[in-house]
Amino acid sequence: MNTVWALSGVVIKELYRRKDFYVLLVLTGLITLAAGSANFFNDAKIVVYLKDLCLLLIWISALVIAVGTAARQIPAEREQRTIFPLLAKPVTRWQVILGKFLGCWLACGLALVVFYAFFVVVTGSREHHWPLLNYFQALWLQWIMLGVVIALVLFGSIIFSAPSANATICIVVVVGILLIGRHLNKVALQQPEPLQTLIYVVYFLIPHLEWYDVRDLIVYDHALISWWHCGLATLYGAVYVLLFLFVAWLAFRRKRLSV
């Protein structure tokens, strides 16, 4: 596990030494503050639009960071050839995959904490109430979702040689799941066979990332989700993470590496 932690430490260092995170944080901050300064019919108590906008920006930023960071990890190791001195040490390819995943996931978690801290300050300053447990739930579920996304992207990064192609495909898949994942069963019912069965199979196979998007519950001050269900969603996410990491390892294990 020491090796995995060491590898993840490098990924985290890479994230905070690159400009991506800071640019996205500043952009989110600027757009939110600009929107917050707008005057709508002389009513200073309006806050929902601000929460909605800020969370949307956080979601976009987190996805960009997660996909961008994960997509370049293994291709960059191969392209810059850092993989060779690394694998010349007692490091297995499974440890490389796991370390990269853990690093990206922890780095995204850190980024999320910073983003949500900003969100709490902005909304708290308007609403004067602090539903921190709800915010924690939203952050936790988003983090779990990012875990699944990172594992998927890592798998993609072994299949596709160009990080940009992998990132684009993964973004399309993830956004597609977020937007229509939960409706695929309804879509299936309106299709003739065998399309119906095919769509239903896809519906049951894809990771239902939309579960982890609880922005509406936060924006409109709904009650907490039961912790039991949060736990089950975490378990569901963990299964997909392991699945994607396992297939990534299977693909990576067979990759020929030559100096």
């Binding site: 707008a38 709508f40 019919f41 009513d43 108590k45 309006i46 806050v47 929902v48 639009y49 579920l141 939960r182 069963n185 309804k186 019912l189 519906y203 049951f204 239902h208 939309e210 579960w211 982890y212 998007d213 609880v214 509406d216 519950l217 409109y220 709904h222 989700i225 039961s226 269900h229 089950l232 969603a233």
Partner: peptide, 30 residues
């Protein structure tokens, strides 16, 4: 229709309510 849909409903709004008591203001920015 299935367990995915049933479980998923814990994570989005399933109550039909309307804003009231002055909270209607929230629709104004849109």
């Amino acid at each position: 229709r299935d367990w995915i849909e049933r479980f998923g409903r814990h994570f989005f709004v399933t109550d039909h309510t309307h804003l009231a008591k002055g909270r209607e203001r929230e629709i104004l920015p849109w």
